[in-house]
């Protein structure tokens, strides 16, 4: 993959530094924290710790300009997310004494946009394709952010996390690698399935929802939150996947596209149980100090994914409003 085109001054400086240029990377100034420019820059910095870029400097991952910039942005994002989710975590703690009950209460408490329902019943073919494209930012590197947590836990939680990841990574069959199934789904719809292909056009909220996974996964200090993120992700997947598969079939897209989501109905029904009890409850049993971070990570997942879904739906709603306005203009003109 090549470094993406910049989307503003922040990503321009970061991308130049990653390429080995001599740009100074000014510290984050508080503006545009969740906007596409800063979030694309952060995505690029994180990607240096995954597969990197063909045209980045080999040692860019540990370029001190980028490390320093990333640290400032991460601190600001984490502080904002802790403020934003404090009430959610309090609600969860009030609802139950045990962690599984708290996580379930959290999922019930945080409402998301009716994106899956919309895709199932009303979305146009182009909107379904747009959804698949936007989601590719995550699904083409599916499970990779949470895999960073494996060496940071021990005992039953480690075994269960390895078991879940093994399933995500194909269960010993390369052709069942979930990121590959997603690439097959994209290709069957005529969408570019190259790793990272759609990052440069993804919305700020979509990039943020991806970046928080790396933020939580790459910092050992936050590994409890990464597990909580995984719990919320898996626990809210089965029903939406069933609806999305139905939507894909409704608009007549190929079977391979629906197959990915059908697979996830079944897989995530398993993973939901594994992640709540075998991973998170075991991790908190082993280290009770992780509880609040597990709940924090779960709340982060629910909030930022709701934002990403809402951003997509808002785009479609405003497009529909513009179309309605245009057709009203046509009526006026023809009258």
């Amino acid at each position: 993959m090549l470094l993406p085109a910049s989307r503003g001054p922040v990503s321009a400086a970061v991308i130049d530094a990653a390429r080995g240029g001599d740009a100074t990377v000014p510290p984050h100034d508080g503006d545009d924290l969740h906007g596409a420019d800063t979030q694309l820059a952060l995505w690029v910095v994180y990607e240096l710790s995954y597969r990197g870029f063909d045209d980045a400097a080999d040692d860019a991952e540990w370029d001190l300009r980028l490390v320093a910039w990333r640290r400032g942005v991460e601190t600001a994002i984490e502080a904002g997310l802790r403020r934003r989710t404090a009430d959610d975590v309090a609600v969860a703690r009030e609802a139950s004494d045990d962690l599984v009950g708290q996580l379930r209460a959290l999922v019930a408490h945080v409402d998301g946009p009716p994106l899956a329902r919309f895709l199932q019943r009303s979305a146009t073919r182009d909107q379904v394709l747009e959804f698949l494209t936007e989601r590719s930012v995550y699904h083409l590197k599916e499970s990779d952010p949470h895999a960073f947590v494996l060496p940071r836990v021990d005992g039953p939680a480690k075994v269960a996390l390895a078991e879940l990841l093994y399933d995500e990574y194909g269960g010993g069959r390369p052709e069942r690698l979930h990121s590959l199934l997603y690439a097959d789904a994209l290709r069957s719809c005529g969408i570019d399935a190259t790793y990272g292909a759609h990052v440069a056009n993804a919305s700020g909220p979509t990039l943020l929802s991806n970046n928080v996974m790396s933020l939580l996964g790459l910092q050992r200090r936050l590994h409890g939150a990464s597990l909580g993120h995984l719990a919320a992700f898996e626990t809210t997947s089965t029903d939406p996947c069933r609806r999305i598969a139905a939507g894909i079939e409704r608009v007549g897209l190929p079977e391979a596209a629906a197959a990915y989501f059908h697979e996830h109905v079944e897989a995530d029904a398993v993973h939901e149980q594994v992640v709540l009890t075998d991973i998170c409850a075991n991790a908190v049993d082993a280290d009770p100090s992780l509880r609040d971070d597990v709940l924090f990570g779960a709340a982060v997942c629910l909030r930022v994914d709701a934002d990403a879904g809402a951003a997509l739906m808002d785009r479609w709603t405003s497009e529909a409003a513009v179309a309605a306005h245009d057709s009203a203009d046509d009526l006026v003109r023809s009258a």
Partner: peptide, 20 residues
């Protein structure tokens, strides 16, 4: 798969597997 969830409510659309 390494671990499977078998439907216990009798309502799954993907029986015998759980579909939530």
């Amino acid at each position: 798969r390494p671990v499977v969830a078998v439907c216990a409510c009798g309502r799954s659309g993907r029986a015998p597997w759980c579909d939530g």
